[in-house]
Design a protein around this nucleic acid. Sequence first.
DNA 1: GTCTATATCCAGATAGAC
DNA 2: GTCTATCTGGATATAGAC
Lengths: 196, 196
Amino acid sequence: MAEETVVNRVQRRRAATVEEILEAAWVLAAQDGLAGLSLRHLAGRLQMRPQSLAWYFPSKNSLYDALYARGHEDFRRRLAEAGPLDVPSAARSFAAFCVENPPRYQLMTQRTVPGFVPSDSAAALARETFGAWRRALQRAGVNDRAHVDVLTALVKGLVDQQITVDPTGDRYLRHLEFVIDMFTRAVASHPPIGAA
Amino acid sequence: MAEETVVNRVQRRRAATVEEILEAAWVLAAQDGLAGLSLRHLAGRLQMRPQSLAWYFPSKNSLYDALYARGHEDFRRRLAEAGPLDVPSAARSFAAFCVENPPRYQLMTQRTVPGFVPSDSAAALARETFGAWRRALQRAGVNDRAHVDVLTALVKGLVDQQITVDPTGDRYLRHLEFVIDMFTRAVASHPPIGAA
DNA sequence: GTCTATATCCAGATAGAC
DNA sequence: GTCTATCTGGATATAGAC
């Protein structure tokens, strides 16, 4: 029906605009800090009035929620597209994903935006993504959750220091291979406390 | 001289008030998020008008700066009082210090408060504290900076995940001994990339 | 040192015209 | 979908009484 087609066209247009908004939001977050995001600045950057932006995202929280959800979708897609991974390439994928967009990393893995709590649906998405990460590591031979938690934390520590202390260099991430190797050997010989 | 005594008394009184303010600020930061600190809320909690609080801290940035400096002083004192440490107890000290006051950890080791940049004097203090941390590890046998960086990042990763994902439990920090052990063995046999 | 009073600026949120 | 208009509130600043 013609009616259906018009609706689809409208939806596509809307989706494209949302896409533009999210893209600009990451850029602004990188400039002004994630918690410093301003809907006014964002609107200005997109050549619209703040009240027009509100038509797409009626609150700051709804924008953060969309960014949060999108981040988890992106990492999940990244994992899926990479196909089967071994431990080193899984760790490298995670680290690369984090440092390529620091505010996204911050939003997804920390709680630094005052008042922001992911919606139920976004939180469910995050759990699915963590499940995918866990299964990827499982296929790579990391079988219990304690090991997954340890590897995740170790890579996160390098990433976080890299972003905070040396955002343009490689002072911390250059030790990634060393840490991966250390982890692999340790897991092979000594199970972590609390392992299944 | 009597004059001198009055001055000292005034200074002590002022220092005590500053102490109260900082103490209340940590509490508020824990409640509302570090970046969500409000000078008005803080003043209200201390039974004073915002303009009176401004007599001690004329801007939000000056408050953050004092908190930042105080955090680094506290960790340095903690290290000094602990005396000579081995690697496990140094790592445990760092981890314990971080989780006992998450906003302090966040302010000291991350960049999540939009617009906050430590003053020169506070930054100098932070460097001194890092120097003390490095010397403490050196006395414990961790001799090159690359190893210090790796250990710091590994512990930070556990701490950060602990605070973010499981703030009331021990899901990540229970692996601290495992990680320390992994680090110690790895350093003994395989120097990190970029080591001196 | 603490207060009242006030003023500017910027932010987010909402109502409603077109 | 986009806009004008308006409301509320926080941050910052200044002048000046007590």
